[in-house]
Amino acid sequence: MNDKFASWPHRVLAVVTGALRAITHLMLNIPERPMRWAQRVLGGQRIAWLFLTPNLIIFSLFTFLPILINFYYAVTGGVQLWPSERPFIGTENFQKLFACDNYFDYSTCDQDLFWRAIYNSMKFVSIQVVLMVLFSLITALVLNRKIVGRGFFRSVYFFPVLLSPVVVALVWRWILLRDGVLNAIIESMGGEKVLWLLDPSWSFFWVIFVTVWAQMGFYTLILLAGLQAIPRDVYEAAQMDRASPWRTFRKITLPLLMPNMIVVLALALIRAVQTFDEVFVLTGGGPGSATTFLVQYIYNTGFAQQIQRFGLAAAASLVLAVVLFILTMAQLRASRSKIDG
């Protein structure tokens, strides 16, 4: 009787295993015949397109088509949303954007806020990306060493990446307000309040600081993976040759880490040009327009006003696309020459 009860779960298990096996066979066998047929008809090379088709359809619908529509919007005017209702105005939107007496003085431009946004974006990108790569590299190098609490620190540096950009910006806003945590600390030590978000220079500094703080963990992780992939024996050989740590870093670590560095640089660059959410919540583009970047200009022009100038916003977004394209091409070229060289 005991045997009978003991074998009962085994029977259930056998039935479940059998059912799972049947389902697996089913899943494998259903596509097999059509696939064999497709391979026979299309040939080994062309069948790859068959697998790419679903993704290409989605990509065309949600990426290529919007790009084309964006081009169309950029050459039309008015406030109508439907493309068919929008009057064609040719290059008027671009002429408006580029109407300037002196490109180095944005106050002489028709669309002064557009040029201010361009200058702010360029300044932000050139400083933030350098700092981002530098700090990510230093952090990755430190976290790659055998230090006490390495696992803990790896988590700590990655933690801000897990937070929503809006949350990050809100937390820092509370810290940096006139009556925020930082000023409370300064006052408790006998200092005077600093208007961190009202002074253009300070607010620009904090925008860079907060974005580096929030995103650094992600890039650190990429570089850390690269560092761990470098074979130990290369370092051992360098040690035997009595190479100094700096020389080891310059001649071994940096060249072998270059592919990861290029990925980090490219990603950081693209993300910096696209910066919007953290800055929008942290400073709102202010004080005045001191931290208004190109994406916020596009948003303000196209969406945040009663008279929504989609055409002008689309033209500005094409300028942004050109900038991103040039940066990416330059990046690719640099990476190829580094890797080949």
Partner: peptide
């Protein structure tokens, strides 16, 4: 007037001064 409300943001963003008033600032 404090600069935070009108000078602290960019564009046409709306901001009220209720927090400052409620905190008796």
């Amino acid at each position: 007037m404090p600069k935070e409300i009108w000078g602290g943001s960019g564009g046409g963003q709306y901001r009220d001064g209720m927090k400052e008033f409620q905190n008796a600032h």
